[in-house]
Design a protein around this nucleic acid. Sequence first.
DNA 1: CTTGACCTGTGTGTTACTCACAGCTTTATA
DNA 2: TATAAAGCTGTGAGTAACACACAGGTCAAG
Lengths: 151, 151
Amino acid sequence: MSTSLTVSQLAKQLEISADTVRHYVRSGLISPERDPENGYKRFKGEDIKRLHFILQAKSLGFSLADIQTIMDQASHGESPCPQVRVIMEARLKETAAKIAAMQATYKQMQDAMQRWQTQPDCTPTGEHICHLIEGFSHQADNFKQEGCCHE
Amino acid sequence: MSTSLTVSQLAKQLEISADTVRHYVRSGLISPERDPENGYKRFKGEDIKRLHFILQAKSLGFSLADIQTIMDQASHGESPCPQVRVIMEARLKETAAKIAAMQATYKQMQDAMQRWQTQPDCTPTGEHICHLIEGFSHQADNFKQEGCCHE
DNA sequence: CTTGACCTGTGTGTTACTCACAGCTTTATA
DNA sequence: TATAAAGCTGTGAGTAACACACAGGTCAAG
């Protein structure tokens, strides 16, 4: 039976988790045959090719929904390439935006960490929860200690 | 009744969506009183302070679960600061890793787009779904056209 | 024949919201 | 005053891409 693989065999071969393979099947991206005896999924050549394609597309930034769309179109005999180009353009912009946002957050985090190095811990008051966090964006450099901080 | 705000009033004041406010309430981050007449949420000073804190912490990269933890600890009278420092360290690393991963993907995407500019569209064959995607990582520069491409 | 290791499918949980929707309030109009 | 339109409410469900839990099935060793 080397012509068909089980979930975990396929997963091992492509170095992904068995759960990931199952997820793609549940999402309808792959539709392997079932073993009539035990209901297990049986992956054959076609399925393995599709999975390969999925992984490649994913590494290029396509979402699973994108990939579904692309494969559907291809299975109708139409060229998916124009769509692929359009989608990629959108994903490219999205990714750039996400990276920028994350970098902004990252900078905030670094700045906070640095400032915190010279600040003591504080005890919560009725007025504040954590001075480290609350005192941050307001009074950048001029942090004033209040009666709540020990040591 | 200017001492208490409704969901949408509060949302407008802090420039977030009403759904976001409701989400925080459902998650237990804020627990406003209810108007006995109609069951509506009524936000008072304490709640508004907490929401402020949530937004600040979020902008510093803390997750809602983190924020919950921090606020819980503070409400027990303990200083959340040591925890805050620990969590931040972890989130900082996570964020750096995510950014690196996204930048790697982004580079892949850009490379792909560039290469695709000189490549024609293709019609799916039994063997391939989309040459643009499949031909990518394998034969970087030496893309060979096969019989499937028109024009 | 049983023990144990391993594997299976399916159901549920995750993050931080967003959307859908029936119903209640408030405002404008007739 | 009646009523209709607009707006707001709470709650239930859906999103992306898996990861985890779990009861049960399978297979080799003894």
